[in-house]
């Protein structure tokens, strides 16, 4: 014979198991709509129809950014890559401050009529999880350990508690 307390505890445990299983199943089922953006690889697989609005996210491929003007508005062409595939993007308008080569970005728009170029209406900058003052970034650059153009910051353990002088001195 269980005490009332033990019975209540079991009811909570069993209900908790059911509820979390149900939630997990739901999250798996709605997986694709829970993702905020598609990567270039996913775009190649899913092949969204021209004109269908979706979000394309990835890294601004280094060396692909071309800036110009059309009708007095800034026009930017670049490619978004996820390391596996890359898609050309064209955007008219003012880019966010954090937009740069090698930086994460999410764009909203659709494929053009013939399906090869992504015309973005909005460009959102995604930023990484690392935070460093400008002098530390300069020191890392000076020591030759990192150029922000070519990818994410090096392992945080190598810089997160060192002075810029120590970082610059440790040439490597």
């Amino acid at each position: 014979m269980m005490t009332r307390k033990a019975r209540r505890l079991w009811i909570v445990v069993v209900c908790g198991l059911f509820a979390s299983t149900a939630t997990a199943l739901m999250l798996v089922a709605f997986r694709s709509s829970l993702s905020y953006f598609l990567s270039p690889q996913e775009v190649l697989v899913k092949h969204p129809r021209p004109g269908e609005v979706f979000r394309l996210g990835g890294v601004v491929q280094v060396g692909t950014v071309v800036m110009s003007h059309r009708d007095g508005k800034p026009l930017t062409r670049f490619r978004i890559t996820d390391g596996q595939a890359s898609i050309p993007v064209v955007f008219t308008g003012i880019l966010p401050d954090l937009f740069r080569q090698g930086q994460g970005v999410v764009t909203i728009g659709s494929m053009t009529r013939h399906g090869e170029v992504f015309r973005a209406d909005t460009v959102l900058a995604k930023h990484g999880a690392s935070y460093m003052p400008a002098d530390v970034e300069q020191a890392l650059r000076a020591s030759g350990k990192w150029n922000p153009k070519f990818g994410p910051a090096p392992n945080a353990a190598t810089w997160d508690d060192k002075t810029p002088q120590q970082i610059a001195a440790a040439k490597g």
């Binding site: 690392s130 460093m132 003052p133 910051a153 392992n155 945080a156 997160d160």
Partner: peptide, 8 residues
């Protein structure tokens, strides 16, 4: 390690 510089 934390990805945030110590003074931040």
């Amino acid at each position: 390690p934390s990805k945030i510089y110590i003074t931040m």
